[in-house]
Every structure is written in structure tokens, then in C-alpha cells.
């Protein structure tokens, strides 16, 4: 389980997260919702290790990790798919995917798992193309696949549906649901679309002004109540 307790984090002097506590279980999808600029990406970066929190703790599988470097967190089973995808543009699709294996111990880096090509068939066709030549939707599939090849226990997805054509949004949504159904990997899904988040997630948190303003089980939540927190 991943437990974030009373996290304060931000950039230089300005704190974006004032006091945020969330939990995410392996095998479940946890959605983090909120309007633009409330600190969703800041929270994800703090979990991935790209941002050091000013206060609070990040606990993963019973161990405090808030001071650990990103590469150590990746190797402990936390995979990160950033907003804007950040694939390596001048590496091929294959090279991008192979880099995902770095999260595994050396002995276990034995080629790419075939499962990723069942989820994202387009990547197999594009294997030898440069990452930068792919369309936005293809790059997003590559970024998710690259994170999955390292067999993570917790996948951090930062707005994976942003700016992508509807057919691929559906595909990514199906993959998230499929991953969740296997109950081997947890997902923290950052999303600003309520419908998309609720279609995938088991539990939700809503952030506003750097704190959690609402949380609950998605099945029993009333969307209208949740929506109040999301309107500008």
C-alpha cells in the first residue's frame, strides 16, 4: 500500500500542497480529481520522487521513501507516466520500451513482455520508428507501455487522456480497467474529467487549494455532489 501523510510540497517558496493525505492500494484504481492548478501533478511528482516534500511522509510497502531518489522508487515498483508523456523523442519505440526494463533487477531484464503489444498493438507496428515521430495518442500509449514493462506494483498516471483523440481515450480506459481487473498493480489516476475517472476508479479524492476536500468510494458517490467541487 502507498500512504501519503500530511504532505506539504511545492516549488521554491510557494506551497502547492498544504496538507494532503491519500492512500492507494495495490490492485485498485485511485482517482485524484481537481481543477487545473490545484496540485494534482505536484502530488504525483512527490510520489515519483521528482519533488521533495517540505513536510509529511510517503510510505510505500511499509517503508518511508520520501527522501529516496526517483530511480530507487522506480526499482521499488513505482512507475510514473508524466503529463505530457515525456517519451525520448530521438530514441526508437523499442529503445524507449527497453528503458522501462531498467526498473527490474538485471537478471529479470529478459525482453519486452508480449502483453504490452496486446494492449497497444500500434507499438509493435511502430517498433523502429523514432518516438518523436509518433502522434500524441501513440506517444501516450508508448509512455504507458514503457512504465508497465518494468512490472510496477503502483502505476502513476498523470492525465493520460489529455489532448488525445476519443478512440484512443477509449483504448487507454480499457487498458486501465483490464490492468485493474488483474489485481496485481495499483493505479493512481490523475484526471480532470469526472466521467473518465469514475469509469475506471474504485476510490476517489478531490483536491482543492492544496488539501483534500472530498473523498469516497466511486460506486456510492453522487456525481452531482462531486461535481460541485470541480466547477470553476
Amino acid at each position: 500500500m502507498l500512504a501519503i501523510r500530511s504532505i506539504q510540497a511545492g516549488y521554491d517558496e510557494s506551497m502547492v500542497l498544504n496538507d494532503v493525505s491519500i492512500q492507494a492500494e495495490v490492485g485498485k484504481v485511485t482517482a485524484v480529481l481537481g481543477r487545473n492548478g490545484v496540485g494534482k501533478s505536484t502530488l504525483i511528482k512527490t510520489i515519483a520522487g521528482l519533488l521533495k516534500p517540505a513536510a509529511g511522509s510517503v510510505e510505500w510497502m511499509g517503508e518511508r521513501i520520501e527522501k529516496k531518489a526517483p530511480e530507487l522508487r522506480a526499482r521499488s515498483g513505482i512507475a510514473y507516466v508524466p503529463q505530457g508523456r515525456e517519451i525520448f523523442p530521438s530514441l526508437t519505440v523499442e529503445e524507449n520500451l527497453l528503458l522501462g526494463l531498467e526498473a527490474l533487477p538485471k537478471k529479470e531484464r529478459k525482453g519486452l513482455p508480449p502483453q504490452i503489444f496486446e494492449w497497444f498493438p500500434v507499438l509493435e507496428e511502430m517498433m523502429h520508428r523514432k518516438g518523436g515521430d509518433l502522434s500524441g495518442g501513440q506517444q501516450q500509449q508508448l509512455a504507458i507501455a514503457r512504465a508497465i514493462v518494468g512490472k510496477p506494483k503502483m502505476l502513476l498516471l498523470d492525465e493520460p487522456m489529455e489532448g488525445i483523440q476519443p478512440s484512443i481515450v477509449q483504448l487507454i480506459q480499457d487498458v486501465i480497467v483490464d490492468i485493474a481487473s488483474r489485481e496485481e498493480m495499483g493505479i493512481i489516476l490523475v484526471e480532470h474529467s469526472l466521467d473518465l475517472a469514475f469509469a475506471c476508479a474504485d476510490y476517489y479524492y478531490i483536491l482543492d487549494h492544496g488539501i483534500v476536500v472530498s473523498e469516497g468510494v466511486t460506486d456510492t458517490a453522487h456525481k452531482d455532489v462531486v461535481k460541485q467541487h470541480l466547477v470553476v
Binding site: G49, R73, F88, L91, L99, E102, G150
Partner: peptide, 15 residues
């Protein structure tokens, strides 16, 4: 090459 292009992303992958 990955570290050269995007240091923080490379480290997030375990490099």
C-alpha cells in the same frame, strides 16, 4: 542518450 535527453524521466524509469 536517455539521460541526455531527459534526466528526470530517465531516473523515474530506474536509470
Amino acid at each position: 542518450r536517455a539521460v541526455t535527453m531527459n534526466r528526470s524521466m530517465a531516473s523515474s524509469l530506474g536509470v
